[in-house]
């Protein structure tokens, strides 16, 4: 028996605002926390390892690494929010339950969470973009086109994360996702080195992973180049976001509305 009224509404924005109000209280430490980890990698590997390397794809290693770092930390920020934070709200604090006693549907809650996690990831990705452009690692204003890509990457990984949250019995479950999915992606999708260094079979697998498409778009934009195959990459990220969100919704309905 399906409700006759629309299941997603503007009330999703009230859910988004709730999360924003919590974040606002801790915005500065949260931003610094989001910046610290990727910056350590960028400087450590970029200067340390980069000093040993000749140019990579025609630029210094740190400039090569910059685009990958933006994408990887966007992915991480979206994943953490959609896993740990959303799970706390769903399971530990029962915040979703209280929201659904008001005229807000589970679909509104999920849409609010998706947009929130994607938005928060966009803030993280953008903060890194700002830092690397201050360091002179960005070639032209074409880099501004990285912003919509960052948001789209955030959407894709937020939606994937919500699937895992819908299935999770406890926080421990998230280790599997990070170990088996997120960490391999960082290594396979061209964050630290060009994917063509990998054996062809691994390259073929990596081509299917969403982070590959994000990096393939962001890195050339930071170099001041128009990426090749824009449409394909954008479509891939979009399909992942929509399909994953649909799966997450189906699973979460089964979990909470039984």
């Amino acid at each position: 028996m399906l409700p006759t009224s629309p299941t997603v509404s503007l009330r999703a924005f009230a859910v988004w605002r709730r999360n924003f109000l919590v974040w606002k209280k801790l915005a500065i430490p949260s931003l610094l926390g989001n910046l610290a980890d990727p910056m350590i990698y960028l400087f450590g590997l970029g200067y340390g390892l980069g000093g040993l390397l000749p140019q990579v794809q025609g630029v210094s290693y740190i400039a090569f690494l910059a685009g990958g770092t933006v994408c990887a930390s966007t992915m991480n920020a979206a994943s953490f929010e959609a896993l740990y934070s959303a799970f706390s709200r769903m399971h530990i604090q029962r915040t979703w339950e209280s929201i659904m006693n008001a005229p807000v549907t589970l679909e509104d809650v999920m849409a609010g969470e998706l947009l929130w996690a994607a938005g928060k990831a966009t803030v993280s990705g953008t903060a890194i973009l700002i830092v690397i452009s201050l360091l002179g690692l960005v070639a032209s204003p074409l880099a501004l086109w990285a912003l919509p890509v960052i948001f789209l990457t955030g959407l894709a990984f937020a939606a994937l994360g919500l699937i895992v949250t819908a299935l999770a019995p406890s926080y421990d479950f998230f280790m599997y996702y990070f170990t088996l999915f997120i960490t391999p992606m960082v290594l396979l999708c061209g964050v630290f080195f060009p994917p063509d260094q990998l054996p062809p079979l691994v390259q073929a697998i990596a081509a299917w992973l969403p982070l590959t498409h994000a990096v393939a778009l962001v890195r050339p934009l930071l170099f001041g180049e128009i990426p090749a195959g824009i449409l394909g990459h954008v479509a891939s990220l979009l399909v992942v976001a929509l399909a994953a969100f649909w799966i997450a919704l189906t699973l979460i309905r089964r979990r909470l509305l039984k």
Partner: peptide, 16 residues
């Protein structure tokens, strides 16, 4: 309910 549960919930209060 459940067809128009959202509209109904607008007029009630819940203490879980």
């Amino acid at each position: 309910v459940p067809a128009r549960a959202r509209e109904a919930r607008a007029k009630i209060g819940v203490v879980p």
